Amino acid sequence: MSALPLASRPTVLIVDDTPDNLTLLTELLKLLYRVKAARTGEKALQIASSDEPPDIILLDVMMPGMNGFEVCRRLREQSWTRHIPVIFITTQGAADDEFRGLELGAVDYITKPINPPTVLMRVDNQLRLKAAADFLRDQNEYLEQEVQRRTQEVMAIQDVTILAMASLAETRDNETGNHIRRTQHYVRALADHLRHLPRFAAELDDETRHLLFKSAPLHDIGKVGIPDHILLKPGRLTHEEFEIMKMHTTLGLDALREAENRLGMSVPFLRLAKQIAYSHHEKWDGSGYPEGLAGEAIPLSARLMAVADVYDALISRRIYKASLPHEDAVQYIQSQRGLHFDPDVVDAFVVLQDEFRAIADNYHDGDAPAAQ
């Protein structure tokens, strides 16, 4: 073991209440290491928690006040000191001390009276092991940070892709303005509220609510495939035109399925996006489209979007209709409880109606008036 320049040497903290032992160990170690000394457990903890902690600690077991076992226990409790290796110094033949020390997390022990070559070898071995462990820990932290960074990049790409697809649909009908953003927040508000009900708790876990928020903007993606003369018609649609308009649900589902097929894998958030795009015009009583589903046969994601979508349509001005006041929209939603809408979702909407109004105000369309 050759001596390194002083500034590059590992630091050894010696903890012993006997001055002779401190002197002996200091003289032995100072040629190879920077040495710090403490005569009490309290002082040892103070040094270990400082801005320049030791690389290894030689810790006497029997000390007045705080003994070595308690010092070791406290070192292992703190995240900033638990990785410092501790070598206990025990009296000859104190097997119980050795066992207890190792049980508390010490890496080795040295018996008194000490053997200098043994001390030097054991300190060197543990410092080498610590260097390897520190390297691996740093690598793991780097890899975790890299995984987190790349995950955030993937999530950002997902978000950008969703908004780009939703905005594409929106450009076909620019009067809808911030509709996709409002409905996205409405759906999240409903999901956050309903998760507290036993009926919905399992289905509305944290991950699902997050994916609902991301998926909601794609509810009208199928309108990209509807001809302009129908999509942008200022008056009431004929029966034939409405039948074509209804096809946007199937077009949306097909587009999202095709995206998954081209990707060659199932994408979790697209599962909800497909449900919402295809089924948000289904009605609780079975009179909706495209399949005439009823009750809980309608996916929950679509039942949430149904309330969000209709409320926003009612309070928004369109080329073919005026906007309704918030109170009238709430009254209409309530009147459709158990008919168009899931009763529990309507009840949640009523509780959250002021939050819906606030969302509408925050994302109102350009010069259009805020929710009245």
Rank of each mutant, 00 (worst) to 15 (best):
G292C: 11
A277Y: 02
P268D: 11
R357A: 13
A322P: 03
H340E: 04
E258Y: 12
A348G: 15
L232E: 04
V330P: 02
V351A: 15
P299V: 04
E240R: 13
S279Y: 03
M245F: 15
M245N: 08
S279N: 03
G235Y: 00
Y320L: 09
R357N: 03
E241G: 10
I319Y: 04
D354L: 01
R337Q: 08
A297F: 09
T250I: 08
V350T: 09
E291N: 11
K233R: 13
E241Q: 14
M305G: 12
L293N: 01
L251N: 05
P227R: 08
P290G: 06
F356N: 01
V267N: 02
G292E: 07
I319M: 10
G225S: 13
D309C: 06
T249Q: 15
A297G: 02
G292L: 06
I359A: 00
E355A: 09
A308Q: 00
E260R: 13
I276G: 03
D344K: 02
T249L: 14
D285G: 01
I333P: 14
I276V: 12
L270T: 05
V307M: 04
V307F: 02
S287P: 08
L237G: 02
A297I: 11
Q336Y: 08
V351P: 09
E241D: 07
K246T: 13
S266R: 10
R303Y: 01
V346F: 00
S316E: 01
R262T: 13
Y278W: 13
A259I: 12
L270I: 12
K283H: 15
N261V: 03
T249S: 14
F242T: 12
S266F: 07
P234F: 04
F269W: 14
H239R: 10
A360W: 01
D342C: 08
R236E: 14
Q336V: 13
A358I: 10
D312F: 15
R262P: 05
R271C: 10
M265W: 04
S323G: 06
Y289G: 03
R318C: 07
A322Y: 08
G286A: 08
